[in-house]
């Protein structure tokens, strides 16, 4: 969502998870469809390239699910596919609409240990870097292996081992750099932010969804 409509990250994390849980519990098709529409609606508020990135994943996952479940029965294949699509889309909207540092801040709010957040943080930072490094090394290997290279697999393990050792050294230095700038292994909670009108609206919608879950459950029984 736009910078303007920034919703408090703690609320976002809580309600995203609650939505996923309700979806998983629900056996009512009407409720699942309502959530699907709500998800599509929120998705439509995002930027085009973000929508594209999110849909790429959720459509692929749902298609896969649908094909896998096709031979079973119609209930499973349709219901589970819709649930999978909605869940994956909802989850993917979270990182696309919230800054990573806000999400780690929200984790801290839920009392997740610092060591977990730290490892998470470092892993995220290194995935991109390691991926790029690995790619470069593979290119270098390709360039050097003219014709048939029987030891390719041997070289691959060398690449991976090298990468590991190198990145461990780099990450240690990164940790020293963090220490030099006053980090001592403790994450800080998010700055206390006042709840805005948008936050309240967001809360109302999600409380509405929870009520709907129980209400629909009742009429069906």
């Amino acid at each position: 969502m736009n910078q303007k409509y920034q919703i408090h990250p703690v609320l976002k994390v809580i309600f995203t998870f609650s939505l996923v849980i309700l979806l998983s519990f629900s056996h009512n098709f009407a409720f699942v469809m309502t959530i699907l529409v709500y998800t599509l609606f929120s998705l439509s508020l995002m930027k085009g390239n973000q929508i594209l990135a999110i849909l790429k994943i959720s459509l692929w996952v749902s298609l896969f699910t649908f094909i896998i479940l096709l031979p079973s029965n119609k209930y499973s294949s349709v219901m589970i596919t819709v649930k999978v699509f909605t869940t994956v889309t909802t989850i993917n909207m979270l990182p696309h609409s919230t800054k990573w540092s806000s999400i780690t801040g929200a984790f801290k709010f839920f009392n997740i240990p610092d060591i977990f957040i730290l490892v998470l943080d470092i892993a995220i930072k290194y995935i991109v870097m390691l991926g790029n490094h690995a790619l470069q090394l593979i290119w270098a290997l390709k360039l050097r292996s003219i014709g048939k290279n029987r030891d390719k697999y041997q070289s691959l393990s060398g690449i991976a081992g090298n990468l590991f050792i190198k990145s461990v050294e780099m990450s240690k230095e990164m940790y020293s750099a963090m220490e030099c700038r006053g980090f001592n292994g403790k994450y800080i909670t998010l700055e206390k932010k006042r709840l805005s009108m948008v936050d309240l609206l967001y809360m109302l919608i999600h409380i509405g969804i929870v009520i709907l879950f129980f209400y629909i459950g009742k009429i069906v029984e």
Binding site: P113, I115, F116, L118, V119, L120, D121, I122, A123, K125, Y126, I127, L130, G131, A134, F164, S167, V168, S171, K172, M174, Y175, S176, G185
Partner: peptide, 25 residues
């Protein structure tokens, strides 16, 4: 978490992050 906190020096924590990144890839 308890075991790691006790058994690992602060400077070795990043190795866990690298491990996660590796496993991810």
């Amino acid at each position: 978490v308890k075991k790691v906190k006790k058994g690992i020096t602060k400077t070795n924590i990043p190795i866990l992050g690298i491990g996660a990144a590796f496993s991810f890839l």
